[in-house]
Structure formats: structure tokens, C-alpha cells
């Protein structure tokens, strides 16, 4: 069975370490905040200028001046700080964020990522995605392994305009957890009940399959 969105978030959350500063993108990455393991404390960075993003507010706590990068109302947790957009991206560009999790349309064996623009469709903009992928050392991309028509999104070369080049080394799809190294995807884990054959069939870029590929457990 392919992973659900919740399971993908749960799997990513296992990569969190105590004391990490983490930027979570919109969509599945946002859900990671719900699965921070017991005994681990992390600080969530929201690129509109908030380090220490808290839970969504109650009706009484809603404040128009308190939003996250997805423009949703939020709260600040104890120990939070608030600053300008330039300061926020100094943290990001300067490599101070320990882990960045974001979605994508495509990734390839060279660590390139395409996530912001589909030619012919309306282009809304890259927001902070290009800064995040250029600035972070430790990035996990979350995406479905293939499109609804079965077209692989793990490619030899990205076909869409890039968000960043040579910057991605870890990918979690609904079928597998993979690393990118030496011009190939390396299959590290597979979703429960998903066969290596299915992953091979749905990966267009070069894929290295180690002798033992453990199944994820939840």
C-alpha cells in the first residue's frame, strides 16, 4: 500500500532531532508538525518572519498580525522570536536551518528540483522555495512517486523549469524513501506492502537497489 499523506508526514518526522530548527513547506510538510516524536523539541521557522511557530489559534486568540508563511492565522510558542523578511532569509540562505521539508513536481538524479512552474499554466511565483533549496544543507522532498497517469516524477533530468540545481539528496514518496548520490537514486526503504519491482517500474531515473531494502513500519 502506498503511504497516506499522514504516514508520509510521520516518516519525515523520524528525521527530526532534538534542538533542530525546521522549515516546513505547505501541504504534507506542514503535517510533520503533528508527529514530532516524544522527548524531542524542535523550533519551526516560518519564512514570513517567525521562529517558534505554535499551534493554530483558538477563536479568542485569532490575531490578524499573527500569520504563517501559508497566510494562515497561527500562534507563537514559548521561546519564539519575530523578525523581518530579510532576517528570516538570512537564516535560510545562511544555512542556519537544520532541516527543510518541501514538496515538488519532479526531482532528478542530479539533485535538481522543479516545484514552482508548469509552462502553459498560470505561474503564481516561487515564493521562498528557491531560497530554501539553495540555502539548506538538509532537505527532504515529499511528493508522490508518479503522476495519476503513472508517469514517474523521479527522473533522469527534470523536464520542468528548476527551483534549484544539485541541492536535493533525500526524497520521500508515497512508495519509498530514497537518497540521491553519484547521479542515481538509491532505494533505502519501501512503503509497507510495496514491492521493489513496483518502485523500479515507477522510477525513470537511474535507481540503485541495495541487497536489503527494509519495509517502513508504522
Amino acid at each position: 500500500m502506498a503511504l497516506t499523506r499522514e504516514q508520509m508526514a510521520q516518516r519525515v518526522a523520524r528525521e527530526l532531532k532534538d534542538g533542530y530548527y525546521v522549515n516546513l513547506g505547505i501541504g504534507i510538510p506542514t503535517l510533520v508538525a503533528n508527529y514530532v516524536p516524544e522527548g524531542i523539541d524542535v523550533m519551526l521557522q516560518s519564512e514570513n518572519g517567525l521562529l517558534g511557530m505554535g499551534a493554530f489559534p483558538s477563536e479568542e486568540e485569532v490575531d490578524a498580525d499573527m500569520i504563517n508563511a501559508g497566510k494562515q492565522t497561527v500562534t507563537a510558542r514559548k521561546g519564539a522570536s519575530i523578525f523581518s523578511s530579510a532576517e528570516s532569509f538570512a537564516m535560510i540562505r545562511g544555512g542556519h536551518v537544520d532541516l527543510t521539508v518541501l514538496g515538488a513536481f519532479e526531482v532528478d538524479v542530479h539533485g535538481n528540483i522543479a516545484s514552482w512552474m508548469i509552462p502553459g499554466k498560470l505561474i503564481k511565483g516561487m515564493g521562498g522555495a528557491m531560497d530554501l533549496v539553495a540555502g539548506a544543507d538538509n532537505i527532504i522532498v515529499t511528493m508522490t512517486h508518479a503522476s495519476k497517469d503513472g508517469e514517474s516524477k523521479l527522473l533522469k533530468h527534470c523536464s520542468l523549469p528548476l527551483t534549484g540545481c544539485g541541492c536535493i539528496r533525500k526524497v520521500l514518496t508515497d512508495l519509498a524513501y530514497l537518497e540521491i548520490e553519484g547521479g542515481a537514486f538509491i532505494l533505502r526503504e519501501r512503503a509497507p506492502g510495496v514491492s521493489v519491482e513496483e518502485i523500479v517500474a515507477k522510477t525513470a531515473g537511474t535507481l540503485i537497489v541495495p541487497e536489503h531494502v527494509p519495509e517502513m513500519t508504522f
Binding site: E47, S84, S85, S88, F89, R93, I123, G127, G128, A129
Partner: peptide
């Protein structure tokens, strides 16, 4: 269109 951090900087 300008990346957000580049725009700020």
C-alpha cells in the same frame, strides 16, 4: 517574479 529572500535582500 523574484524569490522571496532575494526580494527582501
Amino acid at each position: 517574479l523574484t524569490p522571496q529572500g532575494t526580494l527582501a535582500e
